[in-house]
Design a binder for these strands. Structure first.
Lengths: 244, 244
DNA sequence: TCAAAAGTGTTGGAGCTACACCCATGT
DNA sequence: ACATGGGTGTAGCTCCAACACTTTTGA
């Protein structure tokens, strides 16, 4: 934590902060091949009537993570998700409110990055508040510096996918290798790997257990359902594992 | 930034924060084969007379990064360094000062992670303030949750080294491959790679330019001095490059 | 001449890429 | 029957670990 006590001297007065939490909520619609991000329409100044990342200010007695979950719960109903802190933006003059009247209070934003299961996520229709999934390539100009935050979060998402098993936090309990492949393809873009090579590599790693169950989605040969075996995966933790 | 305005209602009062910045300052003494971290002895409550990470509270008009550099400048004199934000710790009840009197003010800590060139870093002997380099394995019990923060920073350091060229921010302009190898060996520990393989791999990547200059450190065959060629490296940016 | 450090080369195996090809199902 | 997606196999290549070996210096 902070090192020095609030300095009694007047030469270098400390800044007073309100702390906000902004969430980048990603979801992957594998069927439509789309990476989506949740945006909300701002209802008040500043940046009224502009889209923005869903955010809130931290309340008394509330932790940063609590605040992040609170936003999530207000916007969508979801069971399975992955949540992680991203970055803190705290320079002066970030927020127009700082100059306006408020006793020199500064606004610091801690951004969180979330991944939710698309098929299960239900948008909560708020009173007149616009909430919508936007495909990542169609995101408009956002309030504050939210476009930069989003950019940063998108890079982090791609990195996370490549070296950690987040995909399984957000895929259904049972899934086919085709679904897994589509998932990666959607986020990482075309040409990251051939399907059959992806398949062979993942299976050789040994943490996908074959349930023996077959499932048929429309035409084509029925696919085997697999389950992520966390125990078999654990020895691979923090190895320089590559999924792509 | 934060989404909603300060709520006028009294049902959910917002928290007021002071924001601190804590630095994990690493340095690598390749000659002695030691990874060092800078600690300071606290001079005031809470945790008086305990070692801690160097930190400070953010002043009016000062950005987070400015504050991080200010700490650095107060403790050491150094030209070459790498600095990056690590993580923000902001739960309630982290800081004993919160309960004590201070109007419900909360303390949020943004930690930064720095790497400085050891040979060049000069500790600034502060008035009676203890400042010292500690080998990473000998770090004592620290104030606040600084041991956890340090643990987190150490992981990040190792990761950074493996996939990004931070080493060259902190190595001398000209260096031998032996020095580079020792550098990695010190942080990553024994047995990460054979010298000759490390050498062959790095040279094949093509961003180390041979200066032709030879240098002799004591016994043994003189070594060639190399220079990091940032331009030749740039195409490898954000590739899943592995140094180890 | 010997130890120490720099630098080169080789060899077997693992893993990746880019395919070609077979299998089971719906229409 | 054929299109569609699931699943298997393989040849050629790259890369890497492990180790043996040569070169150039200081003592």
């Amino acid at each position: 934590m902070a090192g020095n006590p609030p300095q009694p001297s007047t030469s270098h007065p400390l800044a007073d902060f309100k702390v906000g939490v902004d969430n980048i909520i990603f979801s992957i619609d594998t069927a439509a091949h789309r990476l989506l991000v949740l945006l909300v329409m701002r209802q008040q100044q500043p940046f009224c009537d502009r889209w923005s990342l869903p955010g809130t200010l931290v309340r008394q007695g509330e932790s940063l993570e609590d605040a992040a979950y609170r936003i999530l719960d207000e916007k969508i109903k979801v069971e399975n998700l992955y949540l992680e802190q991203l970055y803190s933006f705290g320079g002066p003059h970030r927020d127009p409110r700082e100059s306006a009247g408020s006793y020199n209070v500064r606004y610091l934003s801690v951004s969180y990055f979330a991944l939710v299961r698309f098929e299960e996520a239900q948008l909560i229709p708020n009173q007149s508040t616009g909430v919508a999934w936007y495909p990542i390539e169609e995101v408009p100009s956002l309030a504050f510096d939210h476009n930069q935050i989003l950019e940063y979060g998108y890079r982090r998402l791609r990195n996370k996918l490549e070296y950690s098993p987040v995909a399984f936090d957000v895929l259904p309990e049972l899934f086919t290798l085709g679904e897994l492949y589509q998932f990666y393809l959607t986020v990482l873009g075309e040409g990251f790997s051939d399907y059959s090579n992806f398949r062979a590599r993942l299976l050789k790693l040994g943490f996908l257990s074959d349930t023996g169950i077959k499932t048929s989605r429309g035409a084509g040969r029925p696919a085997t359902l697999y389950r992520f075996d966390a125990e078999a995966f654990s020895p691979l933790k923090d190895k320089p594992l590559v999924f792509v």
